[in-house]
């Protein structure tokens, strides 16, 4: 610890090549331990990264990625051209924020409550059940949703009708779709996501909890003053991670729930990915895809770097990098 502080305090010492090499040498085992992961990310992620250049060329197979004619920002134009870029960006961000906030809240709630329960079989069973939706592919989720929500044949409406109520026109009512999409998301990912929090709670020294209990703290107090603060760093890491992808929409979920044609709903359901998909359907175009991806990356990058900078000021232990 002290040595870190010293080198930090004395930039001259670390700037000379010899001493820097020496520092690396001191850390050699730790560096070696990181090496497989570094190699992995270099090969899997950094090696293809120059491919983003594709966003700036008129791609043809004879010249390949890097010799195809450079066209500047031409491939980005269709995004601006459509005039809907702002709305799409807004929708995408809004959905992701809802996913992040409600998702994490529910995940924490489930994890914390699970920790309080004492019936072993119940915990095992429910946790397994919570996991199930994560394994059902989006295509099936879309089919199931239609069979529940459809006007003439849906389970929901036949239930309403037997109870003497009026059927609901789900698929022509854009207002309710944000709820449907968020609820489906929660249904699918809560069990999976709560595992992280559950594991974090497991790392909490059980002695502390027991001591609190003996001191007369009730469950609510224990949760409020011990468990939740303990989960804060995990939440922040998860948050920072999700922020990086704030402009990457959940295509599989929304496309399969809404479909490619129901423009009645698009105002409240369209995200960047579904829009791009409709644009490119039957017109395969790799550079346009790269252009959109680059836009999403830069947007996410700016958000994350600012969030990380902010975190460094507020709670320096919980930064990503």
């Amino acid at each position: 610890m002290e040595s870190v502080a010293r080198t930090r305090a004395n930039p001259k010492a670390s700037s000379s090549l010899g001493s820097r090499m020496k520092l690396f040498w001191n850390d050699r085992t730790l560096l070696l331990m990181c090496l497989p992961a570094i190699a992995f990310f270099l090969v899997m992620s950094y090696l293809p990264m120059p491919g983003l250049y594709l966003a700036f060329v008129n791609f043809n197979y004879t010249d390949g990625m890097f010799r195809s004619p450079f066209v500047g920002f031409d491939n980005f134009q269709f995004l601006i051209h459509s005039g809907t870029l702002w709305k799409l960006t807004f929708n995408t961000v809004a959905y992701n924020l809802a996913f992040i906030l409600f998702g994490n809240a529910l995940q924490i709630l489930i994890a914390v409550l699970l920790n309080e329960l004492r019936t072993k079989w119940f915990k095992k069973l429910t946790q397994s059940l919570l996991f199930l939706p994560y394994f059902i592919s989006f295509v099936l989720v879309g089919l199931i949703a239609y069979n529940i929500l459809s006007y003439d044949y849906g389970l929901l409406n036949s239930l309403l009708k037997t109870m003497g109520m009026d059927p609901i026109q789900t698929y022509s009512n854009p207002k309710i779709w944000p709820y449907i999409i968020v609820v489906t998301y929660l249904w699918q990912s809560t069990g999976y996501g709560s595992i992280v929090y559950f594991a974090a709670i497991m790392g909490l020294d059980s002695e502390i909890l027991e001591a609190a209990e003996i001191d007369g703290a009730n469950a609510l107090q224990r949760i409020r003053y011990i468990v939740l603060p303990w989960l804060k760093p995990t939440f922040i890491i998860l948050l920072l991670f999700s922020l990086g992808g704030i402009l990457r929409g959940n295509f599989g979920l929304i496309y399969n729930l809404v479909g490619a044609n129901n423009s009645v709903l698009f105002n409240s359901t369209d995200i960047i990915e579904t829009y791009v998909f409709r644009t490119l359907v039957n017109n395969f175009n790799f550079p346009l895809g790269s252009a959109v991806s680059l836009y999403q990356s830069i947007f996410g990058f700016i958000i994350v770097v600012s969030a990380n900078w902010f975190m460094r000021k507020v709670s320096p232990d919980n930064t990503l990098f």
């Binding site: 008129n58 031409d74 134009q77 269709f78 051209h81 459509s82 490619a260 044609n261 129901n262 423009s263 009645v264 698009f266 829009y275 409709r278 644009t279 359907v281 039957n282 017109n283 175009n285 346009l288």
Partner: peptide, 21 residues
């Protein structure tokens, strides 16, 4: 398509969005 690539892309988007309804 090269001379009107962007316009055609935007138009495709309009067709796929509004025509089905």
């Amino acid at each position: 398509k090269d001379p009107i690539n962007n316009e055609l892309t935007a138009l495709t988007q309009v067709v796929s969005q509004s025509l089905p309804a």
